[in-house]
Computed example of a mutant assay.
Amino acid sequence: MRLVRTITVIPGDGIGPEVIGPALDVLVALGLDLRFDVIEEVNAHRYLRDGTALSDADFARVRSSAATLLGAVGDPRLRDTGYARGVLWRLRSGLDLYANYRPARLWHERLSPLRDAARRPIDCVVVRENTEGLYSGIGGGTATGTAAEVALDTDLSTHRGVSRIIDFAFSVARRGVCLVDKASAIPHGGRLWQRCWREAVARHPRCATSHLYADTAALRLAEDPTVFDVIVTNNTYGDILSSLTAALAGGIGLAPSASLNPGTGFGVFEPMHGSAPDIAGTGTANPLGAILSAALLVEHLGHGEEAGAVRRAVAAAVAAGRTTPDIGGALGTREAGAAVLAELGAR
């Protein structure tokens, strides 16, 4: 008997549903034993209607599945962060998805903004701690809305959280791991990160290691991203630096990501680009970030050959210029997805 695994799909907001369609087409074309449970009702429309971001029933469907493919979350009608946190943070904290894995690979040299051809072929990963840091929601304020307002957000780091994200970074490294922090200016958290780093380096003596402060790391990435293999850092710096690596690899429309719990094996896979309300409904959104996120998903489930086939199909479509306008093509979202399908069928 074949094991059929369920993938929950949350199209979400803005361009999310537009890019999830082609990604699902690619997953179906792979012919794997997967079924898809599409949760259409998780979106800003419902939140605006009744205040529900991710209901208990929605969360239960996600938790009972093998993995989740997510489109995007966010809506310009919402000024507060309650909706986005209600979906993203609930998934990350409720499922303990502590490892955010953001690979950046240059699919064609014409997409790089760097002038020096020798320094263009970026192929690295930003490993971002995903459940602590400034995004943990610890803080408060006084005199809100007045000239005397004071706001406080706490940057949370724990030995357990820092140790496990650094160990995860070593587990996915091919050449080396670079710790990025700002211990020179943030003494308490910096001291903890440095201690956990020394302990991890001792556990992985055969892996090349380095350390950079966050500002220097941004500079080095812009100068020569090819020197990096895996960057491990906290929630905030990882969010920022992965946007930089995405730009160096051709743009945010190409950038996949995965939020993982290596212990349970569960993951949420989503393109990095967000809901992009400025282009929603225009049919021009780039589906490749979602398709590459789907490739990460099937690879995570043990289908490495199929994931490789998807990536080769993406590379071929990009090389042929059969893409959306953001990376130099003239195709719409659906047509760009069809171009990948055509390359996949020709394998």
Rank of each mutant, 00 (worst) to 15 (best):
H204A: 01
Y213S: 09
I165H: 05
H211E: 04
C196Q: 08
A217L: 14
L192D: 01
G190A: 08
L179S: 07
R175P: 00
A173Y: 02
H188Q: 08
A218R: 03
T209R: 14
A169Q: 05
K182C: 01
A200L: 03
C196I: 04
G161R: 13
V180E: 12
H188L: 15
R175Y: 08
R174V: 06
H204F: 01
D215C: 07
F168E: 02
P187A: 10
L212H: 01
P205E: 09
G189R: 08
R174F: 01
P205S: 01
I186K: 01
R175A: 12
W193D: 02
A218H: 03
Y213M: 12
I186S: 02
G190H: 09
F168D: 00
K182M: 02
L179P: 13
A208S: 14
E199S: 02
L212P: 01
C207I: 13
A202Q: 08
I186D: 00
R220D: 00
A169N: 09
G161C: 14
H188K: 04
K182Q: 10
I165C: 12
D224K: 13
L219K: 14
A208C: 04
A200R: 02
A185Y: 08
R206M: 06
V201P: 00
R198N: 07
S210R: 15
P205N: 10
F170D: 11
A217Q: 02
G189H: 01
I165M: 05
H188C: 06
E223N: 15
H204L: 00
E199W: 10
A208Q: 05
A200M: 05
A185Q: 08
D181M: 06
W197A: 00
C196S: 13
H211P: 07
C178G: 05
S171W: 11
L179R: 13
P205Y: 06
R206S: 12
A222Q: 14
F170M: 13
T209G: 03
T209E: 09
W197K: 00
D224E: 10
T209M: 01
R191I: 02
R195C: 04
G176C: 11
S184F: 12
F170C: 12
G161T: 08
D215L: 04
R175N: 10
Y213N: 15
R220Q: 13
S163R: 12
A214L: 10
A214W: 03
Y213Q: 09
R175E: 14
V162C: 14
G190K: 11
A169I: 12
R206H: 11
L192Q: 03
K182T: 12
P187Y: 01
G161F: 15
A169H: 13
E199R: 00
S171L: 07
A183Q: 11
G189F: 04
A222K: 13
T209V: 15
Y213A: 12
R174D: 06
A173K: 03
D224L: 15
T226F: 04
V180N: 14
P187S: 08
